[in-house]
Design a protein around this nucleic acid. Structure first.
Lengths: 177, 177
DNA sequence: CCGAGATAGTTCAGGTTTTGACCATTTTTG
DNA sequence: CAAAAATGGTCAAAACCTGAACTATCTCGG
C-alpha cells in the first residue's frame, strides 16, 4: 500500500499509479486494457470539450446540436431514426433536440409522404448557411488537434479505433436503442 | 450534390460520405482530421455506453460515480480539486456527486486539518469492498474490448492518443478548470 | 379485411452535469 | 497587519440524456 500525494498527480502519472496498484496490490490482470480505455476516454473528452467551448458554445449551440445538424447536413433529408443511428444519440434525444432546432429555424420537420408514421428532417436555408460557416471554424480547430500526428499516424489511429469498434459485435456488447 | 438514402447508411459509410461531400462540394481541406475525431468520439461513446450499461447501471451506479470512486480508490485520500482534475469533471460536478456518494455510504468526506477551506475524500469500507468487486467485472469487460487488438497495437494506440492529448497545450485549447 | 404485432416518433419524469454566482478561508502584498 | 487577491468548495438554475409509457401508423397472416 503506497502513499501518494494526489495533489501532485496529473492524468499520466495517475494512469501509471493505477497500473501499479491494480497489479501489485490487487492482482488484476488487464492493466493495458484499462490504460487503453482511460486514454481513449480522456482524449475524446478533451477534444470534445475544446471544440464545444471554442467553436460551438460561443455561437449558442451545444455539442449535440452540432452533431445532429452535421448529420442532417451531409446525409441529406432523413428520418429521426437514421439521425439517431448516425449521431449515436438515442431517438428520444434526437426528438427533444429537433424541437429546439426547429424553433430556432435551423431544421425543417415535415411528415413523410409515404409513411404516415415518419417525418423527414432537413436543414433550412439558415441552417445550411450556419453549418457551412461554423464548420469552417470547426474543421480548422480539428486540424489543430490532429496536426500533431503525421498523416500516416492518423490513418493508423483510425484503423486501430476501427478495429476496436468493429470487434464489439463479437461479445454481446450493449448499444443504444 | 449527390443523392443519398440515409436509411442505408451506417457509421462508416456516413464517414465516407461526409469525406466526399466536404471535399467535393464544399472544398474543405482537413477531411482526415474530421475522420480521426469522428472515429475517436464514436469509439469512446461505444465503450463508455457499454461499460455503463453492462457493469455499472445494473449495480445502481452511474458512469460518473464509477469514475470518481475509481480515482478516490487508487489516488488515496484527496481533495475535490484533485478528483476533478483526475476524472476530468468540473469541481461542481464532483461536489454534487460526492453528496450522493456520501449519502450512499461509499465515501468519507472530512475537513482538511491544515487548510480550513478544504476537505479530504476517501472510500468507506463499503466503498472499498464495492470497488474491488465491481472492478473485477469492469476489467474483464475492458479486456473484452481491447482484446481485438494485439498488445503492440494497443501500445501504439495509447502512444498515438497520448501524442494527441499532449499536443493540446500548443494551440490555446479550452479545458475545464 | 380484421386484428395482432411491429415500427416510427413523441412525451414525460428523473437523474446528471455544467455554468455562474456566491461564501469562506488562506495567502500575498503594500 | 490590514486589505486585496487567490483558492476551495457549494448552491441554484438550466440543459441534456435516458428509459418507460404512450400514440399513431403500417404489415401481414388467416
Amino acid at each position: 500500500m503506497e502513499d501518494v500525494d494526489a495533489a501532485g498527480l496529473d492524468f499520466w502519472s495517475f494512469v501509471a499509479l493505477a497500473n501499479r496498484r491494480l497489479a501489485q496490490e490487487y492482482g488484476f490482470r488487464h492493466q493495458l486494457a484499462t490504460e487503453v480505455l482511460l486514454t481513449l476516454n480522456r482524449a475524446s473528452d478533451l477534444v470534445t470539450y475544446d471544440l464545444e467551448a471554442a467553436v460551438h458554445r460561443p455561437r449558442g449551440r451545444s455539442w449535440s446540436a452540432f452533431r445532429l445538424l452535421f448529420v442532417v447536413w451531409l446525409a441529406g433529408p432523413l428520418e429521426p431514426t437514421s439521425a439517431a443511428r448516425l449521431t449515436g444519440m438515442s431517438r428520444a434525444a434526437v426528438s427533444n433536440l429537433v424541437k429546439t432546432l426547429v424553433a430556432d429555424g435551423m431544421l425543417h420537420r415535415v411528415p413523410d409522404e409515404r409513411d404516415g408514421r415518419s417525418v423527414q428532417l432537413s436543414l433550412t436555408e439558415a441552417g445550411h448557411k450556419e453549418m457551412v460557416s461554423v464548420f469552417r471554424e470547426h474543421n480548422e480547430r480539428e486540424f489543430g488537434w490532429t496536426n500533431a500526428l503525421t498523416e500516416t499516424e492518423q490513418r493508423i489511429l483510425v484503423m486501430l479505433l476501427g478495429k476496436l469498434i468493429t470487434s464489439r459485435a463479437e461479445f454481446g456488447t450493449r448499444s443504444r436503442k
